[in-house]
Design a protein around this nucleic acid. Structure first.
Lengths: 223, 223
DNA sequence: ATCATACACGAACATCCGTTCTGTGTCAAG
DNA sequence: CTTGACACAGAACGGATGTTCGTGTATGAT
């Protein structure tokens, strides 16, 4: 049984997906069954239906029955953007910084930034990302300016060298620093080489809230 | 004659546009004529055709004759992004920095960044914008880091307080600074307050290449 | 050899869908 | 009042489109 294992996408499948992406991008609407057939070198509409059914079952496309061109890609390429909620200004100590898991913040008119998926680090899951608007110059040591938007990924631990938002309960302070674990201490390294690192003892409480994956600055006649 | 002046969009027109945006967004493909009719409260397909023709003439939508759902919005809402070409690294002195007017650089596979239109400064024309990838730390005085992408608008003059890319032929140097005209001198003010301004005499040559409208930094374990 | 499965063709339908034509009512200008 | 542009309805037509069914051909498993 199972003459052909789930080899994922055959060449035909890939050609269909590519064609759909192309047509939707340049024409703004999906092609018809017959147009697909022509594009992939198949003369019968039933063969196209056959493959579309498979692609639907694989979850790559979605179809609405019995309507023409009623099909969409589950993961369209190109122009797509991700809406990242701005959870609040970073300054007063990151109140309620970590979003509850599973909750969608893409609600209605909360502040949010649209970011083209293509400028996010490769295949960043983009779920759960959140953004903070930097208030004040307190982050200037991290090359981050007043008004900048930092895009963060919620994490609770970090690898050496990542820039993370760190909550220091003892100092009642949140700061963006490069994070290094060094023996019995944590070294929190500012990005600006002229400033010196903060050393934190391992038994001092320290909570990592997220890591910075991107900074966006709109320049509008500051200073 | 002309009982009704070009009042632009009537309520019907707006409802159609809104409906198209909605449907394309949630369904991934445009509605049929009859679906549009139902949505805007019109029972005859000819009336919908009637309005679609007007919208086409206004340039708001585009249609392909004689195919079902073959219609697209000229200016789709939401997901749209602007492709901004990266003209090259800023470091060696901005060679050929200013793009020739009218030339489209959105060619094929030049480096480019996609930017959601919604995060560009309000209704920035987005034509002619270009981007530079910062090489080295030479711009650190402008809070701009190695690897950052600065998005610029080509201008040849600047108002006080704008951050501009300035070419100083006498020094064979390009720099990003806040620009101020002060009497017989130009003051080029670094963003970092700890660094002092450069004063340029008015008779010293100075060429403004563009002004910074945005900075994008992908953070990926630097330092 | 036999059988199930995957892949492919083509034709037949029944709709879906866009176009077009006719007709009706309104309203303002002449 | 007449005229004509405008807004709308309704129906008819033909082409476009998705679905289904019957058929055929490899190929691997039994």
């Amino acid at each position: 049984m199972m003459a052909r294992a789930r080899k994922g996408l055959t060449e035909r499948h890939q050609k269909i997906i590519d064609f759909l992406n192309e047509r939707i991008r340049v024409q703004g609407y999906p092609p018809s069954i017959r147009e697909i057939g022509e594009a992939i070198g198949v003369s019968s509409t039933s063969v196209v239906t056959y493959y579309l059914k498979q692609l639907t079952e694989m979850g790559l496309i979605e179809r609405d029955a019995r309507a023409s061109r009623a099909l969409r890609l589950s993961n369209p390429l190109g122009q797509d953007t991700v809406k990242i909620p701005i959870l609040g200004p970073i300054a007063a100590g990151l109140p309620m910084l970590v979003p509850e898991a599973g909750v969608t913040y893409i609600g209605d008119d909360l502040d949010a930034v649209d970011v083209a998926r293509s400028i996010l680090p490769a295949r960043e899951k983009s779920d759960g990302l959140f953004a903070l608007k930097v208030k004040g110059d307190s982050m200037i040591d991290a090359m981050i300016n007043d008004g900048d938007i930092v895009i963060m990924k919620p994490v609770v631990s970090a690898s050496n060298g990542e820039m993370v938002a760190i909550w220091l309960p003892n100092r009642d302070e949140t700061t963006l620093k490069y994070f290094y674990k060094e023996g019995q201490k944590y070294r929190l390294q500012p990005a600006n080489p002229t400033m010196k690192a903060i050393m934190i003892d391992k038994d001092e409480p320290l909570e990592i809230k997220g890591k910075v994956i991107m900074v966006i600055r709109k320049v509008s006649r500051t200073i």
